[in-house]
């Protein structure tokens, strides 16, 4: 009877074979406004992919595709976005190896991780 926004988008993202393809296609779309590089989509209150592995020097971009604002905040506060409304993005360049847990400070059950490898 009711239709939740983005229901269709979630169904797509849940198809295992499609997940990676979706990631890279959304990065391409974001290139117009955001730096090239891996992209984390915020969709249906989920960071996708939940964990991402990159090499030092990589710029990761988060894009909010929900109708509700979100933030991207490192657990250790080493990076922190302003509030991201629908279709807004945030980028951060990782210059040191390590594991960076992060969350949405509005909806802290939303968590993700960036693993930064040396070289």
């Amino acid at each position: 009877m009711f239709k939740t926004l983005k229901a269709g988008a979630l169904a797509l993202a849940l198809l295992p074979g499609c997940a990676l393809a979706l990631e890279w296609s959304s990065a391409a779309v974001a290139q117009a406004a955001a730096p090239a590089g891996p992209t984390v989509k915020i969709d249906n209150f989920v960071f996708g992919p939940q964990a991402i592995t990159v090499s030092v020097g990589t710029t990761v971009t988060w894009i909010n595709q929900d109708d509700i604002p979100h933030t991207v905040v490192a657990n250790d506060k080493s990076f922190k976005s302003k509030v991201l409304d629908t279709d807004e993005h945030f980028s951060f360049t990782f210059t040191k190896p390590g594991e960076y847990g992060y969350f949405c400070s509005l909806h802290p059950h939303m968590t993700g991780k960036v693993i930064v490898k040396a070289g």
Partner: peptide, 15 residues
């Protein structure tokens, strides 16, 4: 918003 768990997310319920 949807009833807890009855939908993909707690986003706005479009009716």
């Amino acid at each position: 918003q949807p009833v807890g768990g009855q939908g993909p997310s707690p986003g706005p319920l479009k009716v």
